[in-house]
Design a protein around this nucleic acid. Sequence first.
DNA 1: TTGAAAGCGCTAACAT
DNA 2: ATGTTAGCGCTTTCAA
Lengths: 336, 336
Amino acid sequence: MARNRNVTIREVARAANVSVSTVSRVLNNKGDVAQETYERVRAVIEELGYTSSLAARSMRSRRTGVIGLIMPDVEDPYAFQIMRGINRAIAQYGYDLILYTSGSTKKVSPPEREKRYVSLLDSITDGVLIVTPATTTFPTSSPVVVIDPNIDEPECHAVIATNYAGALAVMDYLIGLGHRRIGFIGGRPELKSAIQRLQGYQDGLRKAGIPLDPDLIQNGDYTQEAGFVGAQRLLRLPNPPTAIFAANDQTAFGVIQAARQMGLEVPRDLSVVGFDNLPETAYFNPPLTTVDQSIDKMGYVATEILIGLIRGESPNGLLYEIPTRLIIRESCRSLL
Amino acid sequence: MARNRNVTIREVARAANVSVSTVSRVLNNKGDVAQETYERVRAVIEELGYTSSLAARSMRSRRTGVIGLIMPDVEDPYAFQIMRGINRAIAQYGYDLILYTSGSTKKVSPPEREKRYVSLLDSITDGVLIVTPATTTFPTSSPVVVIDPNIDEPECHAVIATNYAGALAVMDYLIGLGHRRIGFIGGRPELKSAIQRLQGYQDGLRKAGIPLDPDLIQNGDYTQEAGFVGAQRLLRLPNPPTAIFAANDQTAFGVIQAARQMGLEVPRDLSVVGFDNLPETAYFNPPLTTVDQSIDKMGYVATEILIGLIRGESPNGLLYEIPTRLIIRESCRSLL
DNA sequence: TTGAAAGCGCTAACAT
DNA sequence: ATGTTAGCGCTTTCAA
């Protein structure tokens, strides 16, 4: 906290009978310390259980060995999955990670909030990662890498997924099975990912020469409820779809529940495909065919890029795309 | 990062034509600033997009408004669920949260690691929360609250769950349904929670006068695999159990899978009950009867206690117990 | 190889 | 009501 009664570098110095600068040299392995002195200081550090203050360290030095992470919502399973990948990367490269969340400032607009967080973390980290930001311009000199930004042309290094291609793959698959009436339940319409998935749905139909039926497109918001409600609407149509493409796995789960409640068996009576492939998707019954975004990989790659930037490397471009791939878990047969 | 080219309090002061201390007063709403000056400074702060450096702030001041969180493993869904509760609390009380994870130092023993993290966070937070720590003595003056410590008599404020009572409730329930042969698949045997659940299993049988059959107890480690393997062993016994009590929900999922693979229908042929009730448990099919630990509530309460301590309040005792409760999702009928 | 001293950005006395 | 000043714990010149 602050009025820290913890042992400081001064106490270590006194106990080891050296100056603070010598202790600092030992801490940072500067090398220009006599072997004997080095060991004595190390011993004292050990004995006193000394840990240098992150606050003081980051105030003076360029490098802290800590990476900052900002997430829109810690509770978001999607963001959490990204964190898994980040975690792998920091372990691999020997960095520490600080995740910052604010309880207050809900009244501030997202871009403002993000900027505030970045400059906050900026003071104690070597670089910052942001998940699904609403802006990509940040008032900082230290590197920033954004993951899945909700911005068309990011102005900083960004890692994105091939949402459009993934949605197209789903449509190719379903159409290939013989489906002609395919319903779609969308994600949060203000998000780029949702727009791209819808686009893939539409273009997939177009490519196959199947006319677009507006009745078959339902709004959603990436929740299970949206899937449930949307599926009910779709299945009650005079001419219901034989397959439903849900904007994410949770929505797909809602679809399956609605179908069941209406006495339909999945996949016998209805084919269901989802986007995303979070770990809990594995618990679904029946197993769900999904588009795997390698969400955690986005986190991993973003961290790798960030660490490269910290080390002074400069990647080719600003954008890095992680390919999606279709995982067929349960055959979605044609009903025709 | 550090060589922060960000705007500092000095630049704000110069732009607003006041001294740094006046800016500091405005920032901290000290009140003894002229209305006019206050507004001018606020305007400049806004204009320059100034954010005070966490590092510098925490070095000088007692209060940072930030709470630190240390988790054994960010990937652990149990710990994540606790974080949900913490998140609710910090939102409620207007604090910020910093989660600290280290990629390196895997070689250090857990207690040492925890101490290191605490003193690290200590320098930038007002208090620290630790999930399932291996120690409860920390070299810090700022308050620490531990959640579900793996220590019998914690030496700092601790929030724990009534694991034993919960396990007992499961046994009462199953025995009440008529079950006499009840299998048990344990959790990580080095953890207190696992020991207490096993104890509840054994005492539940004893209470009902049912002799303990060692064959019915399988080791586990809180994973799905452990449930799968353990259930296979149990169900292949000459005299297999009619019900299985799994140490947590993931293990229960493994049990269900094993039973299915052996041609048994749950719950018709086998009753399954789990401990824990993470959100993904809701996706299980058939619905699982579990002991809800209110895991997130543990996080919430711990945060409340910590904030109280920060504010100088002193709770009654060191220990706070969160009651568990049995959630009956699917009737576990007797097979006798 | 080591120490002394300056100063990072900020807050909190103490002056005015 | 505002400014001046002394550090917080650390790293980093610069001297010795």
